[in-house]
Simulated scan of single mutants.
Amino acid sequence: MTHRSLRQRLVIHATCVALATAGALLPAHAWAAGPVMPRLPMARALPAADWVEVTDNPSGITFKLPAPPKLTRTSKPTCRTYTAASAATSQTVAVCDIPGTDKMEYLYSTADGALDSFRKKAGSDVDSGTQETEVDGRPALDLHASGKNDPPHRLLFTARYIADDPYTVSALSFAYAKNEKALDQEHQQLLDSLRIPS
């Protein structure tokens, strides 16, 4: 597989995952409405103790989501995408079988695809930033993005991408700006629950 085709597969994967996560938070008519999004009540984060543990097969990767997830399987690349929503956020974990993606450059490609998708759905310009990190010695990249609509219509997106050859793991969370505190807490709960076998 060429470097270019691998990058294209990562971008496609990230776009699909970002759309699935945002779609779980927002009803279809909200996307059609452009920047005018429905008002949602302020919501508190769901305690981690109430979350549901999920195990991805065949990777053995485990994590917790705020509700029993919807599982979507895709090919090219082969991914298993788990999406669930709490009262405050929409959360997704995607595990993709993409051998050779153990470098930071591939995580940037994945983040770029997700950010392009978020820009289209946020209904406005987007502020964003990335930070390189690692998870148990594995390369990882954190992405934070925010639409520029006025609250409460402003949409927030935060993600962590982890390279664990032959898998690429994406953990994403969406929320409206008025639920930013819950977003921060629930995204951290998701990251804290994530276990990747050695």
Results as ranks from 00 to 15, higher is better:
15 T>G: 13
38 P>W: 01
129 G>M: 11
177 A>S: 14
151 P>Q: 11
159 A>H: 03
143 L>Y: 02
170 S>A: 13
19 L>A: 14
196 I>D: 04
34 G>M: 02
138 R>C: 12
5 S>F: 11
167 Y>K: 03
155 L>T: 07
127 D>W: 10
168 T>I: 10
55 T>Y: 11
197 P>N: 03
132 E>C: 04
38 P>Q: 02
187 H>L: 00
74 T>A: 04
146 S>H: 01
188 Q>N: 13
52 V>A: 12
64 K>P: 09
51 W>A: 02
57 N>A: 14
73 R>I: 15
185 Q>L: 06
10 L>Y: 00
6 L>S: 04
188 Q>Y: 07
18 A>P: 02
127 D>I: 10
54 V>A: 09
158 T>M: 11
21 T>F: 08
104 M>G: 07
117 S>P: 10
194 L>T: 01
63 F>S: 04
141 L>H: 02
86 S>C: 07
77 P>I: 02
48 A>E: 13
151 P>E: 09
22 A>D: 15
38 P>T: 00
64 K>R: 14
99 P>I: 10
85 A>K: 04
193 S>H: 07
190 L>M: 07
41 P>E: 01
56 D>V: 09
55 T>A: 14
79 C>N: 10
109 S>A: 15
51 W>V: 03
154 R>C: 05
105 E>K: 15
192 D>F: 13
153 H>K: 13
22 A>T: 14
128 S>P: 00
86 S>K: 11
144 H>I: 13
138 R>A: 12
68 P>W: 00
94 A>I: 01
17 V>E: 11
181 K>L: 08
58 P>H: 13
126 V>F: 11
31 W>R: 14
22 A>P: 15
148 K>D: 05
169 V>S: 02
162 I>F: 10
129 G>I: 06
66 P>H: 01
82 Y>R: 00
7 R>E: 15
159 A>R: 02
129 G>H: 13
113 G>K: 05
135 V>F: 15
94 A>P: 14
148 K>H: 10
155 L>H: 04
61 I>Q: 05
108 Y>M: 10
195 R>Q: 13
145 A>M: 02
65 L>F: 01
133 T>G: 06
72 T>Q: 03
41 P>T: 06
13 H>K: 06
144 H>K: 15
75 S>C: 09
47 P>N: 03
19 L>R: 15
181 K>V: 07
93 V>E: 00
147 G>K: 01
103 K>I: 05
98 I>N: 11
104 M>F: 12
76 K>R: 11
83 T>G: 03
17 V>M: 06
197 P>T: 04
175 A>K: 01
32 A>K: 08
126 V>N: 09
78 T>A: 14
71 L>I: 05
87 A>R: 08
100 G>Y: 13
61 I>R: 09
111 A>H: 07
130 T>P: 00
81 T>V: 14
83 T>D: 04
8 Q>W: 05
67 A>S: 05
160 R>Y: 03
40 L>W: 06
3 H>N: 12
189 Q>A: 13
33 A>Q: 09
30 A>L: 00
178 K>L: 11
187 H>W: 06
167 Y>A: 05
167 Y>T: 07
116 D>Y: 12
46 L>I: 13
169 V>Q: 03
31 W>G: 08
98 I>P: 13
73 R>H: 11
11 V>A: 10
64 K>D: 12
44 R>A: 12
91 Q>M: 09
47 P>V: 04
48 A>V: 08
191 L>W: 04
